[in-house]
Each structure stands twice: as C-alpha cells, then as structure tokens.
Nucleic acid binder design. Structure first.
Length: 469
RNA sequence: GGCGGCGUGGCCGAGUGGCUUAGGCAAGGGCCUGCAAAGCCCUGUACAGCGGUUCGAUUCCGCUCGCCGCCUCCA
C-alpha cells in the first residue's frame, strides 16, 4: 500500500484506509477571488496523480475538495469591481474548472461550497461556544486555542513559541494571541447570514472541518493541501474537530510550492503566471510531466526553460508512441497478486513486465516518488527504442511505458497530426522530388514546411509531418 | 524573535555511508540518413565552505556562509 509523509507524525507512514479498498481524501480547494496560477496547477496535479494512481491500484477514492466562495478577499474584489460577491465567485470558479479540465485533472467526487454550509457552520460554532471552546466579543466569535492540549502539532511549535511568534495583532478583544475567528460580524454592506452572534459570516477555518466531516465522516483518511495551509489553517481545523469531539483526518499531507528564482510563487509577491497564460503556449501535459519529474514535497521551478524542457521530453514520449502505434490505455496495478487472480484475471503477464510494474509500484508507494517512477519509464522508453533485448517485444515494452504513464494521468499521443492541405501538398511534392533525387528542391520544400511550423520526418514507410516545438 | 527546510555537474531534478556516473533538457563526438528529423552509442569525473566521526562521506555530526518557507490572506 501507499506510504505518505504525514505532517502530524513527522515521517513517512503507510496509509491504512479506514475502510479497506477505499480512501477518503479531502483536498483544500481554491478561494475563488481571482484566477488560478501555476501553484494551484501543481497542487491540483499532485493530488490528481495520487488519485489516479490509487484508482489504478483498484482503490476507490472519495475525493472531496471545497470551493471557498465567501471570504474577505472576495468581498474586497467585489467592492473594487462594483459587483456582487457571488458574481466574483462564480466567474472565478468557472475559470478554475476550465483550467482543471485543460490540465486533465479529474473533478472531485464532491466539490462543496462554503456558502452552502453556513447553517452547519453556525451549528458547529454554537457547539464550540457551549462546550467552552469559543467565546464572543464585540467583533464576533473566537476559538480559544489554548483549550486544545496539543495545539501546535502541525505547526511543530509549542503554544508558547506560537504566542511569542505572533506578529500581527488585529483584534484586542481576543483572549490570546493564538485565538482565531470563527464568526465575523458583518460591516454595513457586506454579505451576511443571521446567527446567534449577530449577522455576519463564518471565518475561513470552520468550513473545511464542517464540510470534510459531513461528506467524508469521522476519521477520514487523508487531509491535504499546500505547505502554507499547514499552519494556521489545518492546525485550526484540527483544533475545532477536537473541540467538537470528532475524530479528524488520520493523515496530513502537504505539498511544496512552485517557485520562481527560488521564491514562492504567490499573488502577493506578484511573481505569478496564471494557468491560463501557460496553457495558451504550452501543452498541458508538459506541466504534468514537469510536476511528475519533481517530488511533491520539494519546491519546483516553473519557468520558460523548465516548461520547454518538459515539452521536449514529452515529444520524446509521443515519438515513441508514434513509432509503435500506441494508444494509451489504463493500467491495472492491483499489487496483490492473489487478489488479482481471484478476480479471474489470468492474462499471461511475463515476468519481465511484472518486474517493471513492481518496480514502478514500489517507487510510487514510497511517498509518491514520481521522479524515480518517471526515470524508470524513460529507461523503458530507451529499451523499446533500442529494439528490446529481453524476452518482451519492443512494442510490448513501449505499451507498458505508455500504460504506466496513463496511470499517472499522462497520456502519450501517438496519433498523426491534422495537416492542412497546403502543407500536405508540399510534403507530397517533396516526396516526388526526393524520388527524383532532386534534393535541392526537396530541401527547399522542407525549409518551407519548417517555416510554417512543421518538421519533416522520413520514415521507412514514407514521410510524415510533426509540429515544431 | 520563534520554528522548519534547502544549498547536487550549463539548467531542472532524484538519490545513497563504498556499483545508479538516477532521469529529463542543453552541449560535444560518433552511428544511422542523399542531407536532415527521429532513434541509438559514447563523453562531461557534481554534490556550498571548514572541521569531525569512519577503513571510506555527496550521503552521519558540528560550525560558517548563502538562500527560502511558516508564524498575516495564500496551493
């Protein structure tokens, strides 16, 4: 089974699903106040790869990811643009899903919205107030973090050092620097819901607790998100679950950032590229490959150079698929062979292929070591291109490589290109010239094709055109 | 100030106490090709610096320098 680094335990531990054969996964989703950038893209791809991998292993993944559609930034944006918060949220959410679709990211099995859960959040806050974990001030309701014994577990800091580190003090009515807001009273003109503490809106940290527990139930398997959510967001979710006496996530997973010149990509630094910008000029699969070539817990440089290098590597994979006429298809990675055989699957898989699959699975199971897994796949590509020396045919090896990639959501493209009639004609004329040994003319025609974006490839069976990168 | 992490060959990016010179991209040399493209083969002796532990350290420990993240909204 898959092992993952668990932030709470501080080490890589095996995922032992609450329910055998199923994994309940909660991924903190976007706040839709603006368009998604490359960092969001990496995030989505990391979890998409994990989900697809688990599914390829025959595990059902209940994947819940929220959409935060009410918060300060959305309010601010709406005010700036003189629009309603729901207009801002809906528009950005549409952009989000469009980008996810382009990236080939599977939709979550459920994508709850914060605004749909305000009633349940109010109930939860009331419980926390009743239990003495929360208190009301003139600005709203706060959670008393010091009431939770192991507060700071995810932050890896003691309560004392967290208090010492607190740099920003916004609300003097808080009892402790580490307390966080559960309910914000509305200022005039702000969107608001009625509550026992006056009309207002929930604080950010409450929605994920309420929604994850509602949809995935107590003790769900994995809770994940970016490193920046580790503290305070996830810490505060844990604290509320504790106050509500609800068993919470059994495993905490955090991924590292996309960086530009060594610095975290973020809206506030202004060093971001929107996903839409990238997808306009690069194959979405190139970003997926780039993400796969790094480990999810390491920072990743996404630049013009690294994306284009990934694009060239991708072309190598596509070339292999073209060479062997491969159409990618799914892969059953069910690792437990006896279970496999019980299902009546007696397909003869050679020992050679089995060992390649086992090695891939071993690497992936080790905290999603996609760089190693991809490296192994490129080795298969070379083996296939060389003509295979083992008992398996080169095309079987190539097919395996394509299938393993497909299990990570990367689909090679071995199909021909749509060639416009003008270019097709040039190619035809070049073939005639070559046959007539008029290489000067042939080369001139090839240059013409090159200038209009095509690379000519002469194969034993005839010439083909490929888009230039 | 508190806590955490990182510094690998031209670039990206893995990994390990002594055989992986991971892998990708780029570069150079070959093979193939009419020439190319694609592909294959070969090449570069990298692990911030200084000490220490060890038979042996890029990998373990300490220190120094540099960089970054979280502590505030954030994937």
């Amino acid at each position: 089974m898959l092992s993952l680094h668990d932030t709470a335990a501080g080490k890589v531990t095996e995922i032992v699903p609450r329910e055998s054969g199923k994994v309940a996964l909660y991924v903190c989703g976007p706040t839709v106040y603006d368009v998604p950038h490359l960092g969001h893209g990496r995030s989505a791809l990391v979890y998409d790869v994990m989900r697809r991998y688990l599914e390829a292993k025959g595990i059902q993944v209940d994947h819940v990811s929220n959409v935060t559609d009410i918060d300060d930034k959305i309010i601010q944006r709406a005010a700036e643009e003189d629009r309603s918060t729901s207009e801002v949220a809906e528009e950005n959410e549409a952009v989000w899903w469009a980008a996810m679709d382009q990236l080939g990211v599977l939709r979550p099995t459920e994508a709850p919205h914060a605004t749909e859960y305000v009633g349940q959040m109010i109930e939860a806050i009331a419980k926390m107030v009743d239990a003495g974990f929360a208190y009301e001030t003139q600005f709203g309701v706060y959670f008393s973090a010091e009431m939770v014994r192991d507060y700071g577990l995810l932050a890896k800091q003691s309560l004392e050092s967290l208090k010492m580190g607190a740099r920003v003090e916004r609300d003097p009515t808080k009892r402790s620097l580490v307390d966080f807001v559960l309910w914000k009273r509305a200022k005039p003109g702000e969107p608001a819901w009625a509550s026992p503490w006056g009309s207002g809106r929930p604080g950010w940290h409450t929605e994920c607790v309420v929604m994850s527990l509602d949809l995935l139930k107590d003790g769900f398997d994995i809770h994940s998100g970016g490193l920046d959510l580790q503290f305070p967001h996830h810490e505060n979710e844990r604290a509320q679950a504790a106050a509500l006496q609800r068993p919470f996530a059994r495993h905490w997973m955090h991924h590292a950032f996309v960086e530009i010149a060594g610095e975290k990509m973020s809206k506030s630094s202004g060093n971001y590229t929107s996903l839409a910008d990238l997808l306009e000029r690069a194959d979405p699969r190139a970003l997926r490959l780039l993400v796969l070539q790094s480990h999810y817990r390491s920072p990743l440089e996404v630049t013009e150079e690294t994306i284009s290098a990934a694009g060239v590597a991708l072309a190598r994979l596509d070339a292999m698929a073209r060479r062997f006429g491969i159409t990618p298809r799914g892969m059953d990675l069910a690792c437990d062979r006896s279970e496999h055989e019980q299902k009546g699957d007696h397909r003869a898989i050679s020992e050679e292929l089995k060992s390649h699959i086992a090695s891939f699975v071993r690497r992936m199971d080790d905290d999603l070591d996609t760089p190693a897994a991809i490296s192994g796949i490129f080795d298969l590509v070379r083996t296939a291109n060389t003509g295979a020396s083992g008992p398996e045919s080169a095309s079987a090896i190539a097919q395996l490589a394509a299938s393993l990639l497909a299990s990570l959501g990367l689909f090679v493209n071995g199909g021909g290109e749509d060639v416009d009639s003008e270019s097709a004609d040039l190619l035809r004329r070049r073939d005639l010239a070559r046959r007539a040994k008029d290489f000067q003319l042939a080369d001139r025609l090839r240059d013409e094709l090159y200038d209009s974006g095509w690379v000519v490839e002469d194969l034993p069976g005839g010439s083909e055109l490929r888009r230039r990168h």
